[in-house]
């Protein structure tokens, strides 16, 4: 291990992603997300152009300098020691500023308020729940399944058939990717 503190990161190896949507579906299922909300998305660039088409899976990237946390007017974000960016839905006022700050379009707003107004923000938790008591009914209801607390890998990476989606300490993820690139002699 390096001297740097462990920081949990996602990485999607787009040489391996086959646009199967498994991660997105598994996420929605594991966290019982309402219709219209998908915390993880698969996107395809240059669709149909031979040799150029590339797919990748994106969700909250759990940024080190999380811009969402910087702009939140009610400070509802908190960053765990392991780098997972989480937020408190009971503090959130659904203003949407985090969405404007996010480079990945990760924050989403279910229309569950009065008159169909935006409710509290919802985003990927890296399967680490929220500020409520770990594995409580309330945490599960608001933030979904807390797999990290159970010692499990986030569901999206766990179900990825081609091992394209990697999750874990940033150093280890880059070591895996480096190994893949050097053994294939291409990528990156």
């Amino acid at each position: 291990m390096s001297s740097e503190q462990a920081r949990m990161k996602f990485y999607c190896d787009n040489n391996r992603c086959i646009e199967c949507y498994g991660c997105s579906v598994a996420c929605a299922e594991a966290h019982e997300l309402p219709v219209g909300i998908s915390r993880r998305k698969v996107i395809t660039l240059y669709e149909g152009i031979e040799g150029k088409e590339v797919s990748t899976s994106i969700a909250c990237m759990h940024c080190s300098d999380a811009p969402c946390a910087q702009v939140c007017p009610v400070n509802c974000f908190y960053i765990r020691e392991d780098g997972i960016v989480l937020h408190d839905k009971e503090k959130c006022i659904g203003c949407g500023y985090c969405l404007y700050a996010c480079p990945f379009g990760a924050p989403q707003f279910p229309r569950d308020g009065a008159f169909g107004t935006k409710g509290a923000m919802d985003k990927c938790t890296m399967c680490a729940g929220g500020p409520e008591e770990t594995n409580s009914e309330k945490e599960r209801h608001l933030y979904g399944h807390n797999r990290i607390a159970e010692g499990k890998v986030p569901i999206c990476a766990a179900v990825c058939g081609t091992n394209a989606l990697l999750v874990g300490d940033a150093e280890e993820i880059s070591a895996i990717y480096r190994k893949r690139v050097s053994s294939k002699g291409q990528g990156a």
Binding site: C72, P73, V74, N75, D88, E90, K91, C92
Partner: peptide, 10 residues
């Protein structure tokens, strides 16, 4: 809203 963090949000 601007000073929401000092009011605790929610």
């Amino acid at each position: 809203i601007i000073f929401g963090k000092y009011l605790g949000g929610g």
